[in-house]
């Protein structure tokens, strides 16, 4: 067995600590250690974006980021995007624009879009499209998702 490494970090606003094997990815850590199953394993190769999480505000792939690298940092998963009891404006925009169908890509889309909006609060359509280029969706054809992010940027 691999020796586990102790890490402490902020997870969705709360200080936490856990022990992880050094080869464990953030995705398995949040799903198995913290029961946060919103982040999805859909390819495990960094090609689909369904596992995206925010690390110090930057969007990263949960499946390819070593869990040990979050030590001392701030991690936000899709479960941490809501504003207290209420949904975040972006989440509301996803619902109001029909950006959710099967929903499997939605967590990663929301995370990537949250990062995009943090960097460009009022993004152009092209910026939104490029900002989501690492997230695959099979249901929506991306149209409603792009509109939702644009909408959230107009608020």
């Amino acid at each position: 067995m691999q020796p586990e490494v102790e890490i402490r970090f902020t997870l969705n606003g709360r200080p936490v600590r856990t022990h992880v094997p050094p080869t464990m990815a953030v995705l398995e850590m949040v799903r198995e250690r913290f029961a946060l199953t919103g982040s999805k394993l859909a390819c495990g190769e960094g090609e689909c974006g369904a596992c995206a999480v925010l690390l110090d505000g930057e969007p990263v792939l949960g499946c390819l980021t070593p869990a040990v690298d979050v030590d001392g940092r701030v991690l936000v998963t899709v479960e941490g995007l809501r504003h207290k009891a209420d949904l975040a404006p972006l989440q509301k925009a996803f619902l109001m624009e029909g950006a959710v169908q099967c929903g499997f890509c939605t967590p990663g889309m929301l995370v990537a879009a949250t990062a995009l909006l943090a960097e460009h609060p009022h993004p152009s359509r092209e910026q939104v499209r490029r900002g989501l280029e690492g997230n695959l969706c099979r249901c929506t054809g991306y149209v409603a998702i792009v509109e939702a992010v644009e909408d959230a940027g107009k608020r």
């Binding site: 995007l81 619902l95 959710v100 929903g103 499997f104 939605t106």
Partner: peptide, 15 residues
């Protein structure tokens, strides 16, 4: 909007 949307947009829906 879809009835099952909110759970999917918060990551709480369990597949």
């Amino acid at each position: 909007p879809k009835l099952d949307g909110p759970g999917k947009a918060t990551g709480e829906t369990r597949y």
